[in-house]
Each structure stands twice: as C-alpha cells, then as structure tokens.
C-alpha cells in the first residue's frame, strides 16, 4: 500500500501541491488534471526524484526515501519527457536499463523479447532509437518501466503520441497488468482511463479535489446535464446562464451540452467522465478566455 501523507511541495516560493493525502491499493488510478496542476510533481515525489517539502510518502508504512534501493526495486516509472540514448538500439537500451534494475542477463533477454512483442515492436528491436517515431519511443518507454515487473507502476502521460490503435492496445495491456499492482497514470485524455480506472484523482488549486470511482464522479452531474438544439443567436445567452460544456454544429442550429441546477424543457443526458472533467475545470478555461478578451 502506497500512501501520501499530508504532502506539500514548494519550488522556492511557489507552492505546486498543498496538503495532499492519498492512498493507493492495487488497481489503476487515473490522475486527471489540466496542464500545470501538479501531476508530474506528484509523480516525481512518488518515485523519489524529488522530495516533499512537508509530509511523507510511505510504502507498506515505511518512508519510501528510507526504503531506497528496496523501493526502487519494485518501481517502474515512465517520465513525461522520456529520455534515451539515440545511438542505442531498442534492445541495447532495454538491456542497459535491465542491468541497472539488477536483472539477470538471460532473464532480461527473454523479458525484453516478451515486452517488445507486447507493445508491437518485435520487428524493430535491433533498430537504433534515433530512427524511431515519437509513438514508438513512447512504447519503448513503457517497456523499460515494465522490465522488473514492478509492484508500483507510475506512468506520466503514457499515451502521449500514441495513435488510436496503440491507445486501445495500451489500455488492454494496463487492465491485464492491474490485477496485483498499483498503477498510477496521468493523462488529459479522458477516454484513456474511462472504464479501466478504479479511481480517478482530480487536482485543483494545488489540492486533491476528488478521489472517487467513475460512478461517483459521474453522479456529481446526475440529473443536471442537458442537451438542447438552439438557434445560433441564443448561444451567448446560454453561456452566461449555464456552464456550457460543449457545442456542436447541427443542421437546424447548435447543439449545446450544459449543466443546469434547475430542470427545463431540455433533454436530460447521461453524464460522461469527460463532462465531469470539463465541468470541474471550467472556471480555469473561462479565466484564460477572459484574459484573451481583455
């Protein structure tokens, strides 16, 4: 069990995260928050690349910094900007990381073959990484994180740069992995974690706003989400009256999807995770737009 106890992280005078409390059991946890919310900061603390300014992080009740080598032994991490050696082949790079993870050479060879197949890179194992596309590199990154069959897997935007087919493959891979380990992944793409995440964590104003399962999150908007087709002139009015989550051009007007506390003559619709995300972080987008208008 991985636990974050009251963690605050300051960068000089800037506070990136404040009094964060979290618990992770096995299963997939999705970290869903907009740019700059502190996802990477939280993950870097969870992998001991940086340390909390206050509070502590424990694994099975021991501080992860004190555990040191022991903790890193069960850890897999994919950084947001995944770095590699350009002149290495995929296999050579993975052999190198496997050695640093203390894997036995013959075991590592087998494991690498297995993993490259798992992410569909079996044919390019001998190719130099500088010839790889962005999405292929990202998949090599996933491989290196999985080398030591980690109990704690931290993935910082693992699906960035993957095409829809690879996304789907990755999603399947994650759900098979999740059975007996902790997986924490950050993303802005709601569909990446929809249906597979056990719980979704949302960070807002430097704090954890929600840590709930998808049902609970969707129920936040239950009975408040509507759709209506309105003439173009009315759009402004809707924007000022309601939280409009999306709008779509239709033949006979514009279809708006919005949140309203009172029921009206509109079509009530089932909220999706995306709706919740848009609604929760709506103010921030509004603010930035206000600034643009100024």
């Amino acid at each position: 069990m991985l636990e974050v106890h009251h963690v605050t992280k300051n960068y000089q005078s800037f506070t990136a995260l404040k009094e964060v409390d979290l618990q992770f059991d096995h299963g997939i946890y999705g970290l869903l928050a907009p740019n700059g919310a502190g996802k990477t900061t939280l993950m870097k603390m969870l992998v001991t690349l940086t340390f909390p300014s206050d509070g502590e992080i424990t694994y099975n009740h021991e501080n992860i910094v004190d555990l040191g080598e022991e903790y890193r032994d069960i850890l897999g991490y994919l950084p947001q900007d995944f770095g590699y050696y350009k002149s290495y082949t995929a296999e050579k790079y993975l052999m190198y990381i496997a050695a640093l993870k203390g894997l036995d050479k013959t075991k590592a060879k087998l494991r690498i073959k297995e993993l490259l197949e798992l992410v569909g890179l079996q044919d390019v194992g001998r190719k130099k990484l500088k010839k790889f596309s962005g999405g292929m590199i990202q998949r090599v990154g996933v491989c290196q994180a999985l080398l030591n069959d980690p109990k704690v897997l931290i993935l910082d935007e693992p699906t960035a740069g993957l095409d829809p087919k690879e996304r789907a493959r990755f999603k399947r891979l994650l759900s098979t992995l999740a059975r007996d380990r902790i997986i924490l992944l950050s993303t802005h793409i709601v569909s990446d974690i929809e249906s597979i995440a056990k719980e979704i964590i949302m960070i807002k104003d430097k704090r954890v706003l929600y840590k709930k399962n998808q049902e609970e999150l969707r129920s936040l908007l239950e009975g408040k989400l509507f759709e209506a087709i309105i003439p173009f002139e009315d759009v402004e009015a809707y924007h000022s009256k309601f939280s409009v989550l999306s709008e779509k051009q239709e033949k006979n007007g514009i279809k708006v999807r919005f949140v309203s506390e009172q029921k009206g003559a509109w079509n009530e619709v089932e909220p999706s995770l995306e709706d919740v995300f848009l609604y929760v972080y709506e103010e921030e987008t509004d603010l930035s737009e206000d600034r643009k208008h100024d």
């Binding site: 992998v47 001991t48 690349l49 080598e69 890193r72 032994d73 850890l75 991490y77 950084p79 900007d81 995944f82 770095g83 590699y84 050696y85 990381i97 050695a99 640093l100 993870k101 203390g102 990154g141 290196q144 030591n148």
Partner: peptide, 18 residues
Amino acid sequence: TNPAFDVEMVCKYNVHVL
C-alpha cells in the same frame, strides 16, 4: 543532465549507487 537521467535514477542501482 543526461537525457535518460530520470529513468536511470529510478532504477534499483541508480546513478548514485554506480
């Protein structure tokens, strides 16, 4: 400052141990 620093640092035998 090496590109793979983050990955290497999180390995069991990280830069410091080596």
